[in-house]
């Protein structure tokens, strides 16, 4: 999985450079997030702008990141969801769990 990482005033932005987040690559995302948290990163913004497809394992990987960040008193927010991806969060009620922002700029200024 290709992930670009940027720092913005104490927050780390992970841009997922993949069209699909599914059972083939969601384990890589889960591991990458956990590695960052274990290294001391505590405020994460996940940029999903390029992701046009997500399945239940992709949702699970993001939930894993959210739970692990919360355990460390960190923040874990999502940005740039395409409409179909957003609809998967709504179908599974996970839009009530995550803080979701229209884009990274909003997430950085408001999260």
């Amino acid at each position: 999985m290709q992930i670009l990482t940027d720092q913005h005033e104490g927050k780390t932005v992970l841009r997922l450079k993949e069209e699909r987040l599914d059972a083939h690559n969601s384990g890589d995302l889960r591991d990458a997030i956990l590695k960052l948290l274990e290294a001391g990163t505590s405020h994460l913004v996940i940029d999903l702008t390029d992701v046009r497809f997500i399945d239940s394992s992709g949702l699970g990987a993001l939930l894993s990141g959210y739970k692990n960040a919360s355990l460390r008193s960190g923040t874990f927010v999502l940005a740039g969801l395409q409409p179909r991806v957003q609809s998967m969060f709504e179908l599974t009620r996970l839009h009530r769990v995550f803080d979701i922002y229209p884009n990274v700029e909003d997430a950085l200024s408001k999260a």
């Binding site: 399945d55 239940s56 394992s57 949702l59 699970g60 990987a61 939930l63 894993s64 959210y66 739970k67 998967m88 179908l91 599974t92 009620r93 769990v97």
Partner: peptide, 19 residues
């Protein structure tokens, strides 16, 4: 069906198919 209040990382696949 998944427990929407519990934050389980698994268990949504069949729910999505049924939905």
């Amino acid at each position: 069906a998944p427990d929407f209040e519990a934050l389980n990382e698994r268990g949504r696949g069949i729910f999505l198919i049924r939905s």
